[in-house]
Design a protein around this nucleic acid. Sequence first.
DNA 1: CGGGGTGTTGACAGCGCTGTCATACCGCCA
DNA 2: TGGCGGTATGACAGCGCTGTCAACACCCCG
Lengths: 335, 335
Amino acid sequence: MSRPTIYDVARESGFSIKTVSRVINEAPNVRKETVDRVRAAIELLQYHPDPAAQRLGGGKLPTIGVLVDSIDDPFFAQVVAVIEARAMDVGMDVLVASTGMDETRMRMQIQRLARRGVAGLVVAPFGDPGTVAAALPDDVPVVVVDRKCGVTDKDVVRVTDEQGATDAVRHLVARGHRRIGFLGKTSAFNTLQDRYTGYEKALAEAGIEVDARLVETRAWTADEAYPYALAMLATADAPTAVFAASPMMGLGVLRAQQRLHRQDVALVIFGDYPVAELMTPPTTVIDQRPTALADTAFDLLARRIQDPGAEVLDTVLPTLLVPRGSGELAPRAES
Amino acid sequence: MSRPTIYDVARESGFSIKTVSRVINEAPNVRKETVDRVRAAIELLQYHPDPAAQRLGGGKLPTIGVLVDSIDDPFFAQVVAVIEARAMDVGMDVLVASTGMDETRMRMQIQRLARRGVAGLVVAPFGDPGTVAAALPDDVPVVVVDRKCGVTDKDVVRVTDEQGATDAVRHLVARGHRRIGFLGKTSAFNTLQDRYTGYEKALAEAGIEVDARLVETRAWTADEAYPYALAMLATADAPTAVFAASPMMGLGVLRAQQRLHRQDVALVIFGDYPVAELMTPPTTVIDQRPTALADTAFDLLARRIQDPGAEVLDTVLPTLLVPRGSGELAPRAES
DNA sequence: CGGGGTGTTGACAGCGCTGTCATACCGCCA
DNA sequence: TGGCGGTATGACAGCGCTGTCAACACCCCG
């Protein structure tokens, strides 16, 4: 009364296990009638191949691994959700793992997933190019998402970080802002570095000089960003607008604004977040469109699994400025 | 130059593969010196057992499956994150799957995970007791989270839905509210039903009669809740406070409040959500403490995997009222 | 009518483990 | 001294698949 095996299907259908195997894997050169008979037996017995056995017998696990910073980060949660949905459509399972932003752990998790025999891996890496390149396996298809980290021999999907940041700051400049603050730990990721570059660029275009007092690059978490944001907003020559280079930075700013009752400071956050549209004022964001990112990542992975030799692609998706209110505030009248 | 197998370790250590297997599985009756020698060989060769082979050879996969409504729901994202972290600590992987609130899909996903040979399953089920009971496998350890759904033969972890709702409504009553609205599709889950019961109970305690015009039980998503909330808040005898029985309902109410500029209506939401503390006013919530839920779920699962015959536990965790502002608003003066 | 495809199927040997059972050895007691 | 029980180890047969290779049609063409 155990689960039926391929032998049961073979017996039921009157063919050999090999032919059943062929039908399961949609191999060529099987007569249509045979396929039908085997399919009928499979249906009758409610047979499903055992993934572990398939794996052991030479194939890969019908599974894809996803490794992200943290699963409950809304951005990555969406990425995982999309991958899971897409994987389900093609009958694959998804193994999730998180790095917790720890390099050793990242390497360990990648190894574990690879060892597991997954058919492919979606990874949001971090760290310097050397480390990342060493950590990514070469014998498993890998797609790198969100952060390039100097990877050149794998498919990459990411967004136009610099352009997005430029859009954000231009948007603020267009509203008349000249004193625009920046928050984001530029040393952490190349993405953040790029966003800073975009910030600089937009200012330069407008003939505005970067004021070091308005640039804060030390904070990484929202908790760290908060005091800096507080300090920046509390000074006499506070910025009239702030560009937060990540949602975490954004939260830090929002907390500071709430604390100081300074909702009149314009704000654009790089990266959308839940209920941003319900804030007072609703938050203008640069949407990274995580679902598009994940969709593309899945497509690329599927492509590479199917054709390991395909040309390596570095896909850069556009971001989307979503004006909701906070980014459209005019500079408050100088007191 | 492929991955080392148990044979390589056997050769390297000078013992048979069986003894190596014993060491890997920490089986009894192996001389300490042997263990050390084998361990050294394992270390030297950087050997890691192949999970698929372990599975096929009689064991279970060192993997636990998690099935939730949706992976990017903040509540479930946290649950998944905690399970993943705990699993990693004990060297297990996590397969995620989502039901998308579809019964057929739920059943399918459960079967897939079970077939996969996972060591255990954490499931947030839904649907009537019969369906759920039929969908849950008996040959794999299962822990049911968040919603009991009439399950009696599996371990369950959930929160005090009725008590939490009562707390919320009492809290509002204590502020002087008498006209308190309710939003939540009571027919969807027993959890929501319980929350409604809690609502009724708190009103009864205060000698307040339930006003059918203030009770809306048809909406399930935030989009559905929005028009109802709008209607409820726009009437002449609008409630002075609202209890939203789920975060989604809460979002509907918040949108309606924003639209109508009625931030003066008190609000308590069952279930915390990101940045609730940054809203205007900050949202008072009944925290379901998803991390505690997930921790307990993991503990229960580990216990059952280790001892399949253990007594079945129905664990009910307390919720936590988190006052942040919206729930402490006094009834506005009647116009 | 024979040779060389092409299409269709099956026998069988693994894949890397674990379970079962056998073996070898030790110390102990009668 | 023989026999018994316990400890430590190994031989070997699977687990449920897939890959390889062989077998056996059958067809077309010269």
